[in-house]
Amino acid sequence: MVEFRAREGSVEVQPIPNDGGWVIGSLRVTRLDDVRWSFEEDGAPPRIAYAVRIRDDVWLHVDGRVHRLNLVEAGARGSTEEGGCTAPMPGAVLEVLVDVGDEVLAGSPLVVMEAMKMEHRVLAPANGTVAAVHVEVGARVQQGQTLIDLDSNTTEDSAQR
């Protein structure tokens, strides 16, 4: 659940992961690259939006307008990429923060990546134990490439809270 501050109170949105993207009601959202997103509504042609999260704000450009949306519950969130331990975009590995056998908690950082001057932290999707580390510092990785294997202690995907 994601909660944004609104003019009065707040707005809650629940994106549900689905086939490499997300579904929110009748909307389907797909991530195209670091900043570009595609969304389609009820069979209408897909449209493009630009969105980035900067600290506790999501900055968004859609239909010619910019919105700055403030997150109510800020803090570390798990990567919503399937498995949670894959590269969210092509780039370079800056830091590997765990070793095989480490116990990690959901939301704790595993790998720090960099692409297009942006730093990304790949977070643990659930509590678990590191089973394998597939990359080292300086490695160039492709989008979707598996970085870390994690043996989950629980079947609940805590990243989707």
């Binding site: 994601v2 997300w22 929110i24 997103w37 999260r53 968004l60």
Partner: peptide, 8 residues
Amino acid sequence: AVAACAAS
């Protein structure tokens, strides 16, 4: 909706 996806 897009912002919520970007937030994650």
